Amino acid sequence: MKIYNKLVRDKIPNVIQAAGKDFDCHIADKSEAYSLLLKKLDEEILEFKEDKNLEELADILEVVISLANNLGYSQEELIKAQLLKLESRGGFSKNIVLEKVYD
């Protein structure tokens, strides 16, 4: 028996069941889910740092969207906020490194 105690994607119980294995799981309340999402974000970021691939970036995005939902925001509101910030402050595409600001 392997113990996980971590948040998993919605279809994982079906995958485990289809493999003929028994398992225990529960539905987290909002508070527990928030805490588990923060841990999942750390996990996914570490996996991206190791593997540096699009799939791991997609996992990070999914966790960020779920965090927004947990806080009461829709995916559309999150994207709108991202686009507004992009318009007003720019993105990170130019790789600008701020070294100093003089008075």
Rank of each mutant, 00 (worst) to 15 (best):
K21D: 14
Y4D: 02
V15Q: 14
K49L: 14
K6N: 08
K94M: 08
D51A: 06
N53M: 05
A33H: 12
L61T: 05
C25M: 11
L86Y: 13
E56N: 05
L38M: 11
L78S: 11
L46P: 01
I12S: 00
E56H: 07
N53K: 07
A58M: 02
Q82H: 15
R89F: 14
D10K: 01
L86V: 06
I60D: 00
Q17V: 10
N53W: 02
L46Y: 13
S74Q: 06
E47I: 05
E44V: 06
K49T: 02
Y34I: 10
N69W: 09
R9E: 01
S74I: 07
P13W: 01
V63P: 00
I12L: 08
E76T: 12
I79L: 14
D29M: 03
V8F: 09
Y73T: 04
I79M: 14
K40H: 05
I65T: 07
R9I: 03
V64N: 10
A33R: 12
L71A: 15
S93P: 00
S35D: 11
I45G: 04
I12H: 02
V63Y: 01
L7H: 03
E32A: 03
I96R: 10
L38S: 04
K11F: 07
F48C: 05
L84W: 12
K39T: 10
D22C: 04
N5M: 07
K30F: 09
I27F: 03
E43D: 13
V8T: 09
E55Y: 02
I96V: 11
K6L: 04
K30L: 08
F48M: 06
Y34N: 12
E47H: 01
K52E: 04
D10H: 00
D24I: 04
L36M: 15
I65N: 05
S88W: 10
A33L: 14
L36I: 13
L86P: 04
L7R: 05
P13Q: 01
V63N: 01
N95I: 06
E56P: 00
V63E: 00
N69V: 09
A81L: 11
L54S: 08
S66E: 13
K52L: 08
F23H: 05
L36K: 15
L54N: 05
K11V: 10
L37K: 03
N69E: 15
E87A: 15
A18S: 12
E87M: 12
V8G: 01
R9A: 04
I65E: 08
Y73V: 03
D22F: 01
K6R: 14
E62P: 01
I65R: 05
E47Y: 03
K40N: 06
L38N: 12
N14C: 09
V64S: 09
K39F: 08
D22L: 06
P13R: 03
L46D: 15
V64E: 08
K80Y: 13
E62L: 05
L83V: 13
I12F: 02
D22Q: 12
L38T: 11
I12E: 00
V97S: 03
S74N: 06
A58D: 03
A28E: 05
K40I: 07
D59K: 07
G72C: 11
Q75N: 12
F48L: 11
D51M: 04
L41F: 09
Y34P: 02
G91A: 08
R89L: 14
S35N: 15
L61H: 07
L37N: 09
A18N: 13
